[in-house]
Structure formats: structure tokens, C-alpha cells
């Protein structure tokens, strides 16, 4: 079982290294993810955010605009996650506190 676990870890590492061979170079602005249009010709979001975030929301911090406006449902989801965590701790550990008090 132990060797099997090692095998999993090694396989995982090998897979990641294999994946890194196909990754684009780091740093140049010509990277695919930063372009305005994808290789299939569709609009890509990153470039749009850089160009239009200030215009759209009058807010210089692009990350804030993306977080709270363009992808706001993600942020709502994030809030729900943390709320879930709070509720969970409340549910799991609540009884003990009451007894102790």
C-alpha cells in the first residue's frame, strides 16, 4: 500500500511535468490567455477586462471590478462558502459550548 502511494505521487508529478512541456512561455504578452480573441476567434475575457474595466465601472482596480462585477456570482459563491463554513463549525461544535457554559 505504501509503495502504491508513492506510485501515485510519482505518477502525479510525472503528469504535471509532462503538462508543463506544453505550457506557453511565461511572461510574454503574446501568451494565448491574454489575447483579445482566442484561436477560434471568440472574445477572450482577460483583455476585455484590462481595456474596459475602468470605463465600465469607474473603478481603477481591475481585480475588484472583475471580482465584484463581471464575475460577481463567483464572489457570491465564495461568500456562501465561508458562510457555510461558519454554519458548519456552529453545527459541529455548538453543543459542547453550551454544556460547558
Amino acid at each position: 500500500m505504501k509503495y502504491f502511494n508513492y506510485l501515485i505521487i510519482i505518477a502525479f508529478g510525472a503528469m504535471l511535468i509532462y503538462a508543463s512541456l506544453g505550457l506557453p512561455q511565461r511572461g510574454p504578452a503574446s501568451e494565448v490567455a491574454s489575447q483579445e480573441t482566442s484561436i477560434a476567434g471568440t472574445v477572450l475575457p482577460s483583455a476585455y477586462y484590462i481595456k474596459n474595466a475602468y470605463r465600465d465601472a469607474n473603478t481603477p482596480n481591475m481585480v475588484t471590478v472583475v471580482l465584484a462585477d463581471y464575475r460577481s456570482i463567483d464572489t457570491l459563491g465564495e461568500e456562501v462558502v465561508i458562510f457555510t463554513a461558519g454554519l458548519i463549525c456552529y453545527m459541529l461544535l455548538w453543543r459542547k459550548r453550551k454544556n460547558a457554559a
Partner: peptide, 10 residues
């Protein structure tokens, strides 16, 4: 303006 409304919303 619409941009300001968005800013306020954020």
C-alpha cells in the same frame, strides 16, 4: 452615470 452606479454597486 452608469459607470458610477456600477461602482457604487461594487
Amino acid at each position: 452615470t452608469q459607470a458610477d452606479v456600477r461602482s457604487t454597486g461594487i
